[in-house]
Structure formats: structure tokens, C-alpha cells
Amino acid sequence: MKKISLLLIALTLSVVACKKEKKETKTTETEMKKEVVMTPKKVKVALSAKSDSNVSGNIVFTEEAGTVSMTAIISGLEPGEHAIHIHASSDCTAPDGSSAGGHWNPTNAPHGKWGAATGYHKGDIGNFTADENGNGTITFSTDEWCIGCGDETKDILGKGVIVHAGTDDFTSQPSGAAGARVSCAGIIE
């Protein structure tokens, strides 16, 4: 009987020791963090000559962190200042670019210089200068545009870019008296 009692005592002590050991065991949880890498949206379009000009070039639109940046590299221009605007349609089939419609103006604002308190179209980008060789570059960034977001007041997809022969005076309605449309590109994916 003594042997059974000693065996029971030993068994009880080992069970208690195991329970104590389990209580002292710490649980470590590993937190997994998922890093999301956002690839910028990008659309590249080619300008084609209009109105019997030789104006061509490329425009890249990139959207990142809620801002759309535009870089246009244009050649075949007369030296001097030229206007560039976003127009209502991506249709560049007309020989004079008129198929692109008027300036993109989803908020029905008056024509003006971008950011002016008196108002401006969402397509009123502004002027840039072509050098003595007829080459010009313009960069522009805004959080008032998006690429393919579906918001009719911000989405530039389905619109057109027009380069004009002259400068935008920022006051004449509805288009700034910028002259002939010498190049056109549709903003399409």
C-alpha cells in the first residue's frame, strides 16, 4: 500500500508541475503586416498634326497619391508661345481637330487661367514656349484630375488634348482666343 501511495503522490506532483509549467508558458503572437504597393496609373498618348501643320509629340499622364501629372513633349511648332488645353472629346478625326469639341468644362465655369479666383475650365492648362527649333515641353500637376476614376468632374479618360497655334489670353470666352488647333490626341487607354 505504501508503494501505491508513494506512486500516487509522485503522479500528483508531476501533474501539478506540468500544470504550473503550462501556466508559465508565454504565448507569442506574430503580427503579419501586409504592405500594399500602389502602382501609379499611367496613360501615354501621341499627338497628331491638324490644320495642315507638322505638329506632333507625346504626352504622358501619371496618377499617384491623388495627383495627376502631365508631361508633354511637342515638336513641329512655330517658335514662341502656344496654348494647350484638354477638350471634351477624344475624337481627333476632323482635319482641323474640331471633332474634339470645346474645352472640357464639367463645372460650367468661365474660361480663365488655371487657379484663378474668377474661375477656369478643368481643361484650361495654359501656355508653353516652343524654342527656335519648334520644340516645346510643358509639365503640369493637379489633384483636380484623375485617370479612370469615373468622377465626371475629374476623370480625364475619354477627353482630348489640343495644342493651339497661338496663345491663350485667359480672358476671351469660351476658349481664350488661342487660334487654330495644330495637334490633337485622345486620352484613351
Rank of each mutant, 00 (worst) to 15 (best):
I156T: 00
A178G: 02
V161T: 01
V182K: 01
G66F: 05
T139Y: 13
A109T: 03
W114N: 12
K42Q: 15
G136S: 05
A100M: 09
T93I: 05
H111Y: 04
G57M: 02
E64T: 06
A178R: 02
T39P: 10
C146E: 03
M32P: 03
T12C: 14
N135D: 13
K2G: 14
E35Y: 13
V55P: 00
K20P: 05
S51K: 03
S89M: 09
A165W: 01
G176A: 05
G112C: 04
A88I: 04
G186I: 02
E35D: 13
K41G: 06
G97R: 00
K33R: 09
Y120R: 01
N127V: 13
A88G: 07
V182R: 00
S53V: 07
T171I: 11
L7A: 15
L11H: 08
S99E: 06
A130N: 02
W104K: 01
A177I: 05
K19H: 11
C184Y: 00
K34A: 14
H85R: 11
R181A: 09
T137P: 05
T93W: 04
E29K: 14
G112R: 01
P174G: 08
E78R: 15
N58R: 06
S14T: 14
I73R: 13
K50R: 04
P40T: 09
S99A: 12
I73L: 12
I9R: 04
S175A: 14
T139E: 08
K26I: 12
V55K: 01
P110H: 01
P40L: 05
I187N: 12
A10N: 13
T107Q: 14
G102S: 06
T153Q: 09
G148C: 07
V60H: 06
L7Q: 13
L8K: 09
G176F: 01
S141K: 14
N135Q: 07
K20R: 15
S56A: 05
I84K: 00
E63K: 00
V60L: 12
